[in-house]
Amino acid sequence: MEAATSAKKIRVVVAKPGLDGHDRGAKIIARALRDAGMEVIYTGLHQTPEQIAETVIQEDADAVGLSILSGAHMTLVPRVVDLLGQQGADDVVITVGGTIPNEDIPELKRLGVAEVFTPGAPTQQIVDFIRASVS
């Protein structure tokens, strides 16, 4: 049986920039997005902003989720945003998750991050957000 021309699957890159190895959250999100029918590319750990931007472009992703728990988000996130912008991928929906202090959230959003999810965010909320933002 062949599926009729269904809507294109949402493609999401889940990435771990920086050196921290806390990947419990990234893996849970990757799996929840996959279970929600999205195409998920998980980069694995210790990615540079350049590697992440390259993956997003190569995979023609609609969204990228950056998971950071090392406190280096104000260094790493702007770099990914800039690199995506420079390569004409500024329509990619960028979300950030991890130990992000509340007061950093407005600055991250000003830079172009669509949403920041802190510990305790339900996975369904993240799935819904990405689905709504991409379409």
Binding site: G18, L19, D20, H46, T48, S70, G71, A72, M74, T75, L76
Partner: peptide
């Protein structure tokens, strides 16, 4: 800190933003 844990010197490109943080 994370760079020390990963065996990177503090002036390694991968260390940027992580030196002395954790």
């Amino acid at each position: 800190d994370m760079p020390s844990l990963m065996g990177h010197d503090s002036d390694h490109p991968r260390s940027e933003g992580e030196v002395g943080r954790e």
